[in-house]
Nucleic acid binder design. Structure first.
Length: 499
RNA sequence: GCCCCAUUCGUCUAGCGGUCUAGGACGCUGCCCUCUCAAGGCAGAAACAGGAGUUCGAGUCUCCUAUGGGGCACCA
């Protein structure tokens, strides 16, 4: 059997990271089985439609590298792939159901429905439609038809008794009592189908073999199963993926979760927020693949080619999963470290520019290998390399030049010695600078940190910086000497007997 | 309230009846390395929700309880 799966988002705004995980698992499953990954847009709710969402979705998936074989932009043999363009198909099958007595027209107003719901709630009964319109006589039907000006919805006539068993690929059999299920609306009064109808019709017509969707759908799965039954269609294999929970493990991950932010860590939830905060695609994919699934062998870090090879839906953990932002950040650092430095520099450039700095391409390329293992998020580049982009040098206060167990005079002498030594160098590269200054440290009998720390403050003017030697090389001999001179002079102010 | 799903360190997870005095990872703590910060190395604290069964034997199977989650729309 050919494997065909689909990711079917609604164009109601930006992609949620939970949706991305669903897309990823579908994609992994398709690629593992050499099947097709179909993108379908479920825009059957006109009130929630957000202009531009479809582009947001396709751009997001593309950014991550999740490519689809059929979809609204690519077409394919089962199109159209946008549900609002398939309305006649839904009507055709709805009519079929009504004609065969498996669905019926319901004339109840939203107000009446609300009253029924309230009454049920009060009486402690299960909430749901009371099936008033299910067994209308033709006269009653006609009367209601006139009263409501022909406005009606079509409801599915659920079997009233018996049980429905749904075989979930990761949970096993789930059994429901039919009497506890209500007659869901299939066709809305505005002529658009509900998810329940559209999803079943499309999955069948598009020959979807496996449905991998979020856990939220478990409750309506038996109705879907009964719909396939009513149509006489074979139901695809189905699996419900665990929900992603808030970082504290309480509740479904939601936009509100940003407020749970602790330790100053902000929590991205919408896909587009991830690049904004400096996460890289391979890390996000790796992280998402790790939530609810594991690749085995105690392995945490991997790329999608390996995940495709090993993906197995039956290994998915059925329990909900807290969004572990710490682990994501760690993984991001790991993936950054494993990148080609040239590629990393390309990613870093716009981040620095976004901070209003002009980037010197040569300097960036030179410094990148030295900051690579220091970055967790792309914007961390700023704190490490700011000294390279600042238009004007801002020297530190002379006090900050003085290292542990040093006094101003001693510090000044040490810096002067460094100045003298550096001045003589013809080759001003990292290796040479390091070798010369290390021997100098012995010669003038100070500790490495006592000289190098001061040098860092004098030239780079940052407490934290990339390694000194390459930093000095990139800053350049002339500038290094200039700044050193400035620092040495500034120390005069701290030496009372200077004159 | 009703239905459904789940429950191993704080978190992500391994474990599919004996090899579990429960393994890995993140985070945390300590030490080492060290020009700062990282990275890396080593060490450490840290879990089978509880109770009944089944079995020679249960983290692994069954039931109950508790807890958490999902759902109960003319939203998906």
């Amino acid at each position: 059997m050919t494997v065909r799966v689909r990711f079917a988002p609604s164009p109601t705004g930006p992609l949620h990271i939970g949706g991305v995980r669903t897309a990823l698992f579908n994609w992994l499953f398709a690629r593992h089985h050499n099947g097709a990954f179909v993108l379908r847009i479920e825009d059957t709710d006109r009130s929630r439609y957000v202009e531009g969402s479809i582009d947001l979705i396709t751009e997001g998936l593309s950014w991550l590298g999740l490519d689809w074989d059929e979809g609204p932009d690519k077409g394919g043999p089962y199109g159209p792939y946008i549900q609002s363009e398939r309305l006649d198909i839904y009507h055709q099958w709805t009519d079929w159901l009504v004609e065969h007595g498996k669905a019926y027209r319901c004339y109840c107003t939203p107000e009446r429905l609300e009253r029924v719901r309230e009454a049920n709630k009060k009486a402690g009964r299960r909430v749901g439609y009371d099936r008033r319109c299910r067994n209308l006589s033709e006269e009653e039907r006609q009367k209601l038809h006139e009263e409501t000006n022909g406005e009606f919805v079509v409801r599915f006539a659920m079997p009233l008794g018996g049980q429905t068993v749904v075989n979930d690929l990761i949970r096993g059999n789930i059994t429901f009592n039919n009497e506890e299920l209500t007659d869901l609306v299939l066709m809305k009064s505005d002529g658009f189908p509900t998810y329940h109808l559209a999803n079943v019709v499309d999955d069948h017509l598009m020959e979807i073999s496996h449905i991998l969707r979020a856990e939220e759908w478990i409750a309506s799965a038996p109705v879907h199963a009964q719909l396939y039954e009513a149509f006489g269609w074979e139901m695809p294999q189905i699996a419900h993926l665990p929900v992603i929970l808030n970082p504290n493990g309480k509740g479904k991950l939601s936009k509100r979760s940003a407020r749970f932010t602790s330790e100053g860590m902000s929590i991205p939830i919408l896909l587009h927020e991830f690049p904004e905060e400096g996460y890289v695609p391979t890390a996000i994919l790796n992280f998402l693949a790790n939530t609810g699934w594991h690749i085995g062998e105690d392995q945490e870090v991997f790329y999608m080619d390996e995940a495709i090879e090993k993906f197995d839906i039956s290994n998915v953990n059925p329990a909900g999963t807290a969004f572990d932002i710490n682990k994501l950040q760690w993984l991001n650092g790991v993936h950054i470290r494993q990148m080609d430095p040239v590629e990393l520099a390309k990613l870093l450039k716009p981040v620095i520019e976004a901070h209003g700095y002009e980037v010197n391409a040569g300097a960036l390329l030179a410094i990148t290998p030295h900051i690579q293992e220091r970055l967790k998020l792309l914007p961390d580049v700023i704190e490490f390399t700011e000294f390279l982009w600042k238009a004007e040098f801002e020297p530190v206060a002379p006090e900050e030049l003085i290292q542990n167990k040093m006094d101003a005079g001693g510090q000044q002498k040490a810096l002067q010695a460094a100045y003298d030594k550096l001045q003589t160098l013809d080759k001003f590269d990292a290796d040479t600078i390091e070798a010369e200054l290390r021997t100098l440290v012995d010669e003038i009998d100070v500790k490495a940190g006592q000289l190098f720390g001061s040098l860092r403050m004098a030239v780079i003017a940052q407490i934290v910086s990339p390694p000194l030697w390459p930093s000095l090389e990139i800053v350049g001999k002339e500038t290094v000497l200039e700044r050193l001179k400035l620092a040495i002079e500034s120390l005069d102010a701290l030496i009372p007997e200077a004159e």
